[in-house]
Design a protein around this nucleic acid. Structure first.
Length: 277
DNA sequence: CGATTCCCCTGATAGC
DNA sequence: TGCTATCAGGGGAATC
């Protein structure tokens, strides 16, 4: 699943490979993945526009065009953005193909078809609901411990939901929430208002450490994830909690447990991550 | 207003 | 062996 580290990895891959390319054409077999306008208008507005930059906001991948418009992508669970040479072997589940100059193609593949792309003028980006209420990016300079404490004080409730709430911290999803809490030794059902100073610091540090390490290893290839060149990440080998139910905790040997929080599977070590003392 | 449920889609898995 | 039922999963919409 492309969460912050995976989208960041894709972003870096696209910067290397398609920055400077011009979009020549678009084709799709699933028009509903293109949101906000008809395929005809979408095509008309991006044809002959040049890709001048790639950004990431939370889990959103943004391609800047020289027309002042942005292509905004959400890859959801199984979305892939692949850069290929034209005529290269097909990638399964490809639903949108951007034909580019320099003999390249940007392919949007998605087994689930939950992903979407939308063309948004950069002056209207803040009107996009997915961006308007987006919380702080944990990799930004503004994400200091002091800021983290300010944010925590404004919230109550289950800590895992807090971490996964895109309106609070942008980019943390189901995999990294379990990993961060495991590293911080905090039970996923603890309430943020009950965390002491030491635990808050551990949570802050674990958030940064896990995300940075995952980026360094080019993401976790869980489910469908691969980078812009179809390569798997390396962080899935470093997972200590996510999808480890029944396996021994690498810290203490206790079996990793699985519970459901907010309809999402959640993994933790019942011994390292106690609900109460 | 906040919390929960439904829904989009389809491969994997379980159950018969 | 092969069919059908169930589930996962991000996030917006509908509902409680």
């Amino acid at each position: 699943m492309p969460e912050l580290p995976e989208v960041e990895t894709i972003k870096r891959g696209l910067q290397k490979s398609i920055k400077g390319c011009t979009i020549l054409d678009v084709a799709t077999d699933t028009p509903k993945m293109i949101q906000g306008k008809t395929l005809k208008d979408f095509k008309k507005e991006i044809k002959w526009k040049k890709i001048i930059g790639i950004e990431r906001k939370g889990k959103l991948l943004i391609i800047n065009l020289n027309s002042g418009q942005n292509l905004v992508f959400h890859l959801k669970i199984a979305g892939r953005l692949l850069v290929r040479e034209q005529g290269a072997q097909e990638d399964e589940y490809t639903h949108i193909v951007f034909k580019l100059s320099k003999g390249k193609e940007l392919r949007f593949a998605d087994l689930r078809k939950f992903g979407w792309v939308r063309l948004v003028p950069k002056t209207k980006m803040f009107e996009l609901p997915a961006i308007k209420e987006l919380g702080i990016d944990p990799l930004s300079k503004e994400f200091t411990f002091k800021k983290f404490l300010d944010i925590i004080e404004k919230h109550r409730g289950v800590v895992k939901k807090f971490l996964m709430n895109q309106k609070v911290i942008a980019g943390v999803g189901n995999i990294y929430a379990s990993e961060i809490l495991w590293k911080a030794k905090i039970h996923p059902e603890r309430k943020v208002e009950d965390l002491n100073e030491k635990e808050k610091l551990a949570l802050y540090r674990a958030t940064l450490a896990i995300l940075k390490k995952a980026i360094k290893l080019k993401g976790a290839s869980v489910n469908q994830y691969v980078d812009a060149f179809g390569e798997k990440g390396g962080f899935e080998k470093e997972l200590n909690a996510y999808q480890k139910a029944g396996e021994s905790c690498s810290r203490c040997g206790t079996r990793i447990a699985k519970i459901t929080i907010g309809g999402r599977s959640t993994f933790f070590c019942p011994r390292c991550q106690k609900k109460s003392n």
